[in-house]
Simulated assay, not measured.
Amino acid sequence: MSDKDQQDKNTHFGFQTVAESEKAKRVADVFHSVAARYDLMNDLMSGGIHRLWKRFTIELSGVRPGNKVLDIAGGTGDLTRKFSKLVGPEGEVVLADINDSMLKVGRDRLLDLGVAGNVRFVQADAEALPFPDNHFDCITIAFGLRNVTHKDRAIASMLRVLKPGGRLLVLEFSKPGNKMLSKAYDQYSFRLLPLMGKLVTNDSESYRYLAESIRMHPDQETLKAMMVEAGFARVTYHNMTGGVVALHRGIKP
């Protein structure tokens, strides 16, 4: 493929079709806009249930003292904070995010909470992680994979930096199995979510994109197949809240 063809290749930004080179900037603009009130909006959007989804992710991670953990798209640091306690002073947690506004909010929040000694902050692209091969015991990516342009590249990059026997956990919005729930979820996503975004952050369009990006994300079985194709073993997923959210887990052989 020529450089021009590569530059002209298109992808999805929500329901819009945009050039791949444009998507990263537009996603960045979304998170620059919402970073300051990201935690508040998460609580409002999920009724606080996102904390239960993340707690289950922690429980399934199998993280122990001394482990090295990578929290990709770690945002404001909810998972990083918990992992920091689990790995202890001999372990390490890397909070990575491609968006410098989100990374700054997460760093400031964790420092304010006294979480610092075993945590590093790295601005990184999930498609090309700047870490050595076979380095981490566990990788998590919570509500971030759907924003990645080449999800297959990101999954392969995560596999590379995991140690053999290491675990990848992908927590992401997914596809409800019940038709009635799916219809209600659509109404909520496309009517109430942008309204809340307008009222709380004065930014309805960013939250409209977030709703659209959820619909464009692969469903549970498709994402499972992508992880298997990348080389992960024993890939399973757990539906939560009727499939509104799914937690995928895979092991590096």
Results as ranks from 00 to 15, higher is better:
residue 1 M to H: 10
residue 3 D to M: 13
residue 7 Q to F: 13
residue 15 F to T: 03
residue 19 A to D: 00
residue 19 A to E: 11
residue 20 E to K: 12
residue 28 A to P: 01
residue 34 V to P: 03
residue 39 D to G: 10
residue 40 L to I: 11
residue 40 L to Y: 09
residue 41 M to T: 06
residue 42 N to H: 08
residue 49 I to A: 15
residue 49 I to Y: 13
residue 50 H to Y: 09
residue 51 R to G: 02
residue 59 E to M: 13
residue 63 V to M: 04
residue 73 A to P: 08
residue 83 F to W: 11
residue 85 K to M: 09
residue 90 E to S: 15
residue 96 A to N: 07
residue 96 A to R: 10
residue 99 N to T: 06
residue 103 L to K: 13
residue 108 D to A: 12
residue 117 G to Y: 02
residue 118 N to S: 11
residue 119 V to W: 03
residue 126 A to F: 12
residue 129 L to R: 07
residue 129 L to V: 02
residue 131 F to T: 03
residue 140 T to W: 03
residue 147 N to I: 08
residue 148 V to M: 13
residue 148 V to P: 07
residue 150 H to Y: 12
residue 153 R to V: 02
residue 153 R to T: 08
residue 167 R to I: 12
residue 168 L to I: 15
residue 171 L to N: 04
residue 173 F to V: 02
residue 177 G to S: 12
residue 182 S to R: 12
residue 188 Y to P: 00
residue 191 R to S: 14
residue 192 L to P: 08
residue 192 L to C: 13
residue 194 P to W: 11
residue 195 L to G: 06
residue 196 M to T: 02
residue 201 T to F: 07
residue 202 N to Y: 14
residue 203 D to I: 11
residue 209 Y to G: 06
residue 210 L to V: 07
residue 211 A to V: 01
residue 212 E to P: 00
residue 216 M to F: 00
residue 217 H to P: 00
residue 220 Q to S: 04
residue 225 A to D: 10
residue 229 E to F: 07
residue 230 A to D: 04
residue 231 G to P: 03
residue 237 Y to V: 02
residue 243 G to S: 03
residue 244 V to M: 14
